[in-house]
């Protein structure tokens, strides 16, 4: 069974998904980060494939991607690192990146290689549903690679229903009209939007992301979904640290501890 399916079958509340950019802060940080995220209590991990032109991402992830590419990160290096990480943990792994990376690697080769490296799902924000159905759906489904789509405050109910039909992984609920990396408290308007999505009764689990940065916003998001995704705040926590593993553990503990 796909590790994501297993996770969502066993756990439906307070799921913590942490994003990091592969190759940041150091080329060889990937295994250390995955191991420590898993041990400290993250439930799933979103591994960012660094891209030169990450148009849906804010400055923090953009800069970490640039650094990762300068460090020499490539897809083949990443797949080797993920294969190594799989010796230590069965935590579900989701790759996040841009469709051009998949296209250049070759969509079928990409999915098969990722699957063999222990990847359970994909998030490709610039592959919208029309192009997904045309070019990618058959390959993903044939290889049991779960694909997650995003919905935003502007996504219509009809389109959410369509995305619900196509999503094989969890649904990524973008918390506001925003790129990644903004922080601050969750507003009443956002809560109303989360409640609207919650009431739609989608089949797939929902994780709220963008703007989730601390224990408080994580707890609030968890009231309206199965869990939440933290990215930029974690990247900021890794800046200039000597011990990546210790920084990772202490970040996750800071998010989870107050929940008890």
């Amino acid at each position: 069974m796909n590790r994501l399916s297993k996770l969502f079958k066993e756990n439906t509340k307070n799921l913590l998904n942490v994003y990091f950019t592969a190759g940041y802060p150091n080329l060889d940080s990937t295994v250390t980060i995955i191991q420590n995220l898993a041990e400290a209590g993250a439930n799933l991990i979103e591994v960012g494939m660094p891209y030169s032109d990450p148009m849906a991402d804010g400055e923090t992830i953009q800069q970490s991607s640039m650094k990762a590419l300068q460090n020499g990160m490539t897809l083949d290096t990443l797949f080797a690192q993920l294969t190594e990480a799989r010796q230590y943990t069965e935590i579900p792994l989701v790759l996040m990146g841009y469709y051009n990376q998949v296209m250049q690697y070759g969509p079928e080769k990409f999915v098969k290689t990722a699957k063999a490296a222990g990847v359970d799902g994909l998030i490709l924000p610039d592959l919208p549903v029309f192009e997904y159905e045309q070019e990618f759906r058959a390959i993903a489904e044939a290889n049991d690679m779960q694909v997650t789509f995003l919905i935003t405050p502007q996504t219509s109910d009809d389109r959410i229903a369509k995305i619900g039909q196509l999503s094989t992984g969890f649904i990524y609920v973008v918390s506001s009209s925003s790129i990644t990396g903004k922080s601050g408290d969750i507003t009443e308007g956002q809560k109303a939007y989360f409640a609207r999505i919650d009431a739609l009764d989608l089949q797939q689990p929902k994780l709220i992301g963008f703007g989730i940065s601390d224990a408080k916003s994580f707890r609030t998001a968890c009231e309206y979904a199965n869990g939440a995704i933290i990215g930029s705040a974690f990247i900021r926590a890794l800046k200039d640290v000597d011990d990546v593993g210790a920084a990772t553990r202490s970040f996750v503990e800071g998010i989870l501890e107050p929940v008890g």
């Binding site: 849906a56 469709y99 919208p128 935003t152 973008v174 009209s177 790129i179």
Partner: peptide, 11 residues
Amino acid sequence: GGAYIPEMLHP
């Protein structure tokens, strides 16, 4: 051609 855009730009 086409429109390879994030969902945020879809509307």
